[in-house]
Structure formats: C-alpha cells, structure tokens
Amino acid sequence: MNNRLKVLRAERDWSQADLAHALGVSRQTVNALETGRYDPSLPLAFKIARVFGQPIEAIFTED
C-alpha cells in the first residue's frame, strides 16, 4: 500500500516524533509507515485520517 504520510507531515512542518505523539505510536512506527515497511491497522488508519483531517482514501492508496 502507498501513502502520503511524509508529504502531509512535511506540509504541516511536523517531525516524525510530533506525528508519533499525535498518533500514540513510536517514532519508529511512523518511519516504518512512511517507508512502506508497515501497513497500519484500520483503527490506526482512521486515527491518521483524523489527525490530518482527510479521508483515509486520500492518504492511502493501493499499489
């Protein structure tokens, strides 16, 4: 799965640690999400969408 996490985060000038704190996960998890090494669970995907104020399908797309 592809995602726009890094772009969305950069647009808001947030660090990985900032996003990790907002999501309640580790910085390593944010890094793994951004580099495509980990696909989030549905609850985490919803949380990401809520944090960025966008629908899930605007952030995550299929390969």
Binding site: A10, W14, S15, A17, D18, N31
Partner: peptide
C-alpha cells in the same frame, strides 16, 4: 508541534 526533524 514544532520544527520538522526526520529520522537522521
């Protein structure tokens, strides 16, 4: 939220 700092 503060300055952007990625994994170095």
């Amino acid at each position: 939220m503060n300055a952007s700092v990625d994994t170095p």
